[in-house]
Amino acid sequence: MTAIQMEQSFGQRLKNSNIVQAWLVLTLALLFGAALAGIQISLAPTIEANKINETRQKVPELIFGKTRALEMAAQNKNLHVTPQFIAVEKQGKKVFYNVFKADMDGKCVGWVVKTNGQGYADKIELLIGLAPDAETITGLFILDQKETPGLGNKIVTEKWRSQFIGKPTGTRLTVTKTGAVTDTEINAVTGATISSRSAINIINTAVGDLKGPLTAKAK
């Protein structure tokens, strides 16, 4: 037998031997498993931090407004943010709200509520900034939405969101198509009344449910 023929039969033997095949698959699976475990250990903290920072980064802006938040960042003043779950019982069912408490120098300076609800198309997820006594809305940020681009999409613009700053939480906010006059009216996005109304409903529900508990906690 020539050398090449001997090599061929060795390769053939490898291919035909079931034990070798099984070991091969097992080794490969273990290698991949180890690689994935390594990735998990090294990257999982970063990913967790990304998820949390997505909300945390917005907290100063939602409570103090954009300009003051930038000032605070420049002065390196940091807020201490504690996430908590607040349960509210509605119609016999417990509904949990994801609430962030913002403290500065040991004193509560505001709340940020993360909530979601049905929009025109799919869910809208948003962050509401509230004053420490939960009497006024201090900011609004849309985290996730799938509304119509160019129409309902405009609820993410700063111009529309800034209407909410300073609005009282005592009464339900309503949406108008023409100029908003009273303290509880919000201008709808032109051509996207349903998206606007959905967002406002989500805010009304969350604020209505949490106003009592938050006021009690702030005391």
């Binding site: 607040i86 509605k90 339900r172 009592g212």
Partner: peptide, 28 residues
């Protein structure tokens, strides 16, 4: 709907609001 949508006047609205929240309150 959980409660009547009609808002008569700011005071009545506030009363309705307080009534609903205090009825369903269960704080963790």
């Amino acid at each position: 709907e959980p409660v009547a949508q009609v808002v008569v006047s700011p005071d009545a609205g506030q009363a309705l609001q307080l009534a609903r929240v205090s009825k369903s309150l269960s704080v963790q």
